[in-house]
Design a protein around this nucleic acid. Structure first.
Lengths: 246, 246
DNA sequence: TATGTTCGCTTGATAGGACATACTGCCTTT
DNA sequence: AAAGGCAGTATGTCCTATCAAGCGAACATA
């Protein structure tokens, strides 16, 4: 029961202490040092062992509880729930997800324009009449196989976007480099049947199943930066997530 | 700039102070008293006005930041991001969602059995060989129109389930009444084409688009309580969510 | 033996203080 | 006039303390 969980806390590091603890426990869980179902020592002892105060220890455990790795019960203790928590859906882009996954995504820019926003786009991005946006369509492939067809509209008063950069990196990377700090996004996931336009591009047949995703992203100044409509081949892509009860 | 936000804190209430603050600010945002983009007073002043300590005030604001309603910037202040944060996907069941929405869902139990779990189910629920589970299929309708076809497997060592109760209430309500405290669930959302079995039940045609959802739910003791495979008519249902960048 | 009560352990909530760090705008300097 | 530095302000991190509340097991009682 006495888990040593050999953590080391570096007080000279710029990384906050509570975050070092979070990373340490996460690592212990993922390496199997802490098995699912096992109980941790109590907060006070753990804090004492690491020479931390109890609030700091608690803050670390709070994060782990939030992310679903730990469960606390008053009067009982804290135990590991699962090592299988996926936490995508944190405003990552498809490009990043694929890159982190070891795949090598490529992007074909099918269309690109800098045009006046239509009514729907103006509503989605909270733009006044006459405002212009970047509008483009991209086809993303992995290993030469098409995976997603993406149409996006982006405000033009943030950073310049050109066709070449869209072909070499993800949209979110471009925007982040342009100084955008994303804060939240609302998205809707559904399904549709591939039409005659989508099917050949995705190298499938009309009538096959597609996963659809519509998303609008907001930055830290409250601007709706980007909105888009994506479709994915259902046989190659699905959205995985972990829900945590609070 | 001086937002009074007339909050009242009831110290005799069993509701934690920080949570009272959370509810108060949420209400102020949703009623429009605090507009998106407006700045709040600083933490220390707010705490002083409510006769709270700064940690308590911060804990309240932490929750609001987590849920995406507020954004904090060091050296600048805290401001309201949006009043349009949806927070579904918090382990609610379809039945609850529809009920809260004012609709009146009905459930047809198409099949019901108490049987030995097959290998796939045993893996999903972490059950030993020979363990039994409840296995049932339900068709959910709203306003007489079929919406979802749901197949579920539930451990039988938690609470008894019978066909009648499944017809009158949601699965999660039954399990919660049976003493289950859900903690997290992992789910996968995708798409497929309606087959000859699904189409007539959902009153659609084979070949139409369906949204698929697979979910496994875990309770606070670490047991995998339930796993299921659901399909929804794509023209009537989609998953909406708000992602928060941390 | 069975049942009810109490006590100790663990997490939950709140307080108040001290110092660190990032951002903004003003003021100085060139 | 433009660029750089500085100070003020707000949040970020971390600490010590203390009481409350839930849970379970041991103990006492019928």
């Amino acid at each position: 029961m006495t888990n040593q969980l050999n953590l080391r806390i570096d007080r000279s590091s710029p990384v906050p202490l509570y975050h070092q603890v979070v990373q340490g426990i996460e690592a212990a869980i993922h390496t199997g040092l802490l098995e699912p179902g096992s109980r941790l020592e109590n907060e006070i002892d753990l804090a004492a062992q690491l020479n931390l105060s109890r609030p700091t220890m608690r803050k670390a455990m709070d994060e782990l509880v939030r992310s679903g790795l730990l469960v606390r019960k008053r009067g009982v203790g804290t135990q590991v729930v699962s090592s299988q928590v996926r936490r995508p859906l944190e405003l990552s882009s498809l490009y990043d997800d694929l890159s982190n996954n070891g795949s090598k995504p490529t992007t074909d820019v099918l269309s690109f324009s800098h045009e006046e926003a239509d009514a729907v786009t103006r509503t989605a991005l909270h733009l006044p009449a006459g405002a212009k946006v970047y509008h483009f369509t991209r086809l993303r492939k992995v290993g030469g196989k098409p995976l997603a067809l993406m149409e996006n509209w982006v405000r033009d008063d943030i950073t310049a976007i050109d066709e070449a950069s869209l072909g070499s990196q993800g949209l979110y990377a471009i925007l982040r480099n342009g100084g955008v700090n994303f804060r939240l996004a609302s998205q809707r996931i559904g399904a549709m049947i591939a039409n005659d336009y989508q099917a050949p591009l995705l190298e499938t047949t009309p009538g096959s199943a597609l996963v659809t995703m519509e998303r609008t992203a907001v930055d830290d100044t409250g601007r709706n930066v980007e909105t888009g409509h994506h479709v994915y081949r259902a046989d190659s892509y699905s959205f995985e997530m972990t829900l945590v009860q609070r």
